[in-house]
């Protein structure tokens, strides 16, 4: 009896342990899964942290507009380079995203239009341009000869197809971005909290904007291949929004956003690997948004806590009235 039991314990290896908590070891240890998972997790970590600043600056929808606007840059980069090389497509995305950002700022400053109208028009015009160019190269005598199947991946993302080189590219963007965020942590903090005061103590807000746009753009551009132009904005803003429910300290919010991002990326990637046909990006976003909604309910600032507080207050009030 005892020997059987002992035997069972010793045979409990790592794989069984994972199986026991419902994870499939075979999937977890497959090379493809590891590559995809690393890619999405690193991306989501950086995007979550950088995006927190975007959210706090009240610019959550700008990320969406820029995500859509990077699409024509990808097609143009393809037309120039005649290849699906990740790096050149990424540079194309950065250029057209930045151009869109500059035009948005320009119109916002120089017309009486509201920012959201500007975003809507620029977003559709740029994405429309992408559609025009894409239809132009389809069946074109020159461009048509080069395989271009990979291009549509940049609209919805195709995380399942990423290679080691893509993960390296993500790292190449992630490390400098995180470094900038870490080094200029104090400067970003005061720039987001009180821009006028920041200026008065000699901090150049132009420089801060340039840094912020630079890292946001590169995160968006690397994320396109994994998540796509339509959905990349979620990676930026949802972890930040979630983290803001949990803490009142900027440093903690950044860390929570990173954790929420990478955890969602892991779970989302796992789910999409288990159920064939599910795309990775959307799965991650569903997990992320789920966490956001749960946080809004159960966090210390959340709906539940508010409700309990109000009930306690009313109880105390009625008690004191009775006394």
């Amino acid at each position: 009896m005892l020997s059987v039991y002992l035997n069972k314990i010793f045979s409990l290896n790592f794989a069984n342990l994972l199986n026991a908590i419902g994870l499939d070891f075979e999937i977890l240890s497959s090379y493809t899964f590891i590559v995809v998972c690393l890619g999405t997790m690193i991306l989501a970590t950086v995007a979550g942290m950088v995006g927190t600043i975007t959210v706090l600056k009240g610019q959550s929808l700008i990320g969406d507009a820029i995500g859509h606007s990077s699409y024509p840059g990808i097609i143009i980069a393809f037309m120039i380079g005649m290849s699906l090389d990740s790096v050149s497509l990424m540079i194309g995305a950065i250029i057209s995203g930045t151009l869109a950002f500059i035009i948005i700022q320009f119109i916002d400053k120089n017309s009486k239009l509201n920012l959201d109208a500007v975003l809507a028009v620029i977003l559709s015009a740029f994405f429309g341009l992408g559609m025009v160019l894409k239809s132009f190269i389809q069946g074109h005598p020159i461009y048509g000869k080069v395989p271009q199947g990979g291009l549509s991946n940049y609209i919805f993302g195709q995380a399942a197809f990423i290679r080691t080189i893509d993960v390296q590219l993500i790292l190449a963007v992630a490390i400098p971005s995180l470094l900038i965020l870490f080094l200029f942590y104090k400067e970003f903090k005061i720039f987001v909290f009180d821009e006028v005061y920041a200026k008065s103590i000699g901090l150049s807000s132009t420089l801060m904007y340039v840094l912020l746009v630079l890292i946001t753009m590169s995160v968006i551009a690397t994320g396109l291949k994994l998540v796509g132009a339509i959905l990349i904005s979620s990676f930026l803003i949802v972890p930040g929004i979630t983290a803001l429910q949990w803490s009142n300290r900027f440093s903690h919010v950044l860390i929570i956003a990173a954790i929420v991002g990478s955890f969602s990326a892991f779970v989302g990637t796992y789910i999409s690997s288990v159920y064939a046909g599910m795309s990775t990006g959307p799965c991650i976003i569903v997990v992320m948004s789920g966490l956001a909604f749960i946080s809004m309910f159960i966090s210390p600032k959340g709906l539940l806590a508010n409700w309990l507080r109000r009930r306690k207050y009313l109880n105390d009030l009625s008690k004191s009235l009775i006394d």
Binding site: G58, S60, D64, D116, I241, P282, C283, S289
Partner: peptide, 16 residues
């Protein structure tokens, strides 16, 4: 803006 930014990518993802 954040509410808009959370809801529609979620719905779009679910649809996909």
């Amino acid at each position: 803006d954040d509410a808009v930014g959370i809801i529609f990518p979620l719905f779009f993802s679910l649809a996909v």
